[in-house]
């Protein structure tokens, strides 16, 4: 038996589409790419899946970032600073 569902509801991960969290932060991380040595500490410590790692660089997904600043505190090369938004 197939149960009826609301169209578009509860698609896996659909909370990440147009998230309400985008406006939560008062500060956002800024990366100094020259200082970043791609250690991925910011990525593994982020509570909000707001750090994306591509082949050669780290990028912040600001719609997910809540501005906690853990990445800036934990960055071993001080490549991340928090700036007002």
């Amino acid at each position: 038996m197939k149960l009826p569902t609301t169209p578009g509801a509860y698609q896996p991960g659909n909370m990440g589409v147009n998230p309400r969290t985008a406006g939560w932060k008062s500060k956002a991380p800024v990366l100094d790419a020259g200082k970043c040595d791609q250690c991925l500490k910011c990525w593994i410590y982020c509570p909000d899946a707001a750090v994306e790692v591509t082949a050669d660089k780290v990028r912040f997904i600001l719609d997910y970032c809540k501005g906690c600043g853990i990445c800036a505190v934990e960055c071993p090369t001080a490549a991340i600073s928090m700036a007002g938004v």
């Binding site: 991960g13 659909n14 909370m15 990440g16 589409v17 998230p19 309400r20 969290t21 939560w24 932060k25 410590y45 982020c46 509570p47 909000d48 899946a49 707001a50 997904i61 719609d63 997910y64 809540k66 501005g67 906690c68 600043g69 853990i70």
Partner: peptide
Amino acid sequence: LSGGHQGISGYGGTI
């Protein structure tokens, strides 16, 4: 666990 979830800023549980 997608970003955009409703955990508070800096919450250890979602980490």
